[in-house]
Design a binder for these strands. Sequence first.
DNA 1: AGCCGGCTCCCCCGACCGGGTGAGCCGGTT
DNA 2: AACCGGCTCACCCGGTCGGGGGAGCCGGCT
Lengths: 219, 219
Amino acid sequence: MTDTVRVLLVDDEPLVRSGLRAILGAELGIEVVAEADDGVAGVAAATQHRPDVVLMDVRMPQLDGITATQRILERVPNTRVLVVTTFSADDYVLDALRAGAAGFLLKRADPAQIREAVRVVARGDAVLFPTAVRRLVAHATPQPRHEALLATLTDRERDVLRLLAAGRTNAEIAAELWLGVETVKTHVGNVLAKLGARDRMQAAIFAYESGFSDAVSGL
Amino acid sequence: MTDTVRVLLVDDEPLVRSGLRAILGAELGIEVVAEADDGVAGVAAATQHRPDVVLMDVRMPQLDGITATQRILERVPNTRVLVVTTFSADDYVLDALRAGAAGFLLKRADPAQIREAVRVVARGDAVLFPTAVRRLVAHATPQPRHEALLATLTDRERDVLRLLAAGRTNAEIAAELWLGVETVKTHVGNVLAKLGARDRMQAAIFAYESGFSDAVSGL
DNA sequence: AGCCGGCTCCCCCGACCGGGTGAGCCGGTT
DNA sequence: AACCGGCTCACCCGGTCGGGGGAGCCGGCT
């Protein structure tokens, strides 16, 4: 259970590497198995040593940390990459997450914090900046003001809105719901009136922005 | 810097509370300052003791953990709430994040893991399940296959698509771009042809799903 | 010079859309 | 019994949309 966590350090500055090595090496249950001074070398080292955790710098010559992360995870999927960054609000946070990073670590973090972050990601959890989480959540959260309006719709009107927002024509909606086209027109008209939408386009946009029709629904 | 982390336990089962107290209390730098057996009591205890971290159960009588989290963060914004859950894939993960939770902890986690999670959230970071992160990231990531098609559009066509996806009519697009309606119609026609869209509705949906028009752009 | 792609505009026409209005049916409430 | 809201369908009409064609202008490339 409490196996030793094998760590690979990837940073172009020797000083940072030795600092991390000093912090992590002294810790029981953590072992720095290799170092690399560049993304390319980092990918090679990761492939060779198959570490549990990679501490990855972002800005490096040859190959940046984001791309290196991506390549490492393609080759060694079980590895967890902890991106070491200077600022929490950096642009590449989302890119790093897309590449598969398990978390972030500020360079100015204190030793205990670094050790704990390594342990947490080694166990399989993700360590993120709260600001990043908040932004991600905001992306997946419907605007509350929309909820009230959506609530005024009847079940049938919601059916129609769902198909309408999927780009169906009135005739298609009618066919899918086993209705007459005229009935669909009535429902669409009611939906437009209730949502204050000028046309079906506006209603569809409303549905999208409120998260009513969400491509990724399983959240 | 390494102040003592003051913890509040909120769980309706005394056994869980004493277990957590045993695990956390024995640890240097962590102090359990209060316990509560219910959401209502939890909110009261949090308001009174203003702990650094709250370990919050989800399923509780009277007031569930999500709502309790929300209320606590309204009253004591500096507190970090760590939600204790049984399964990582539970539905309320997103709800908890919306309520402001700083992280999650599995009930079956081992003592070291629990201590580390408390430390990490106390320091300000978030501890999440990788699956949750992946879903959130997927939400904020455009589909790559769409990129290629979008690239075939000319600058003018992209202008038109942007406005089209915003729900503008051809006349409005014409007015905003200082064009004749007929010109806009030509561009719209080209956009539809290039994207393989049947009508403007399909094109707008394409734009939305590809992240081309993203309401929340600042990520 | 010739060609091509992008941008601009024009006309025609069939189809779809949205608004207005009216009406019948059903189930629940007053 | 009377009423109301939701669901269903119908007709008319004006407007927009999308596809078809054609045309002129400009800048870059061959």
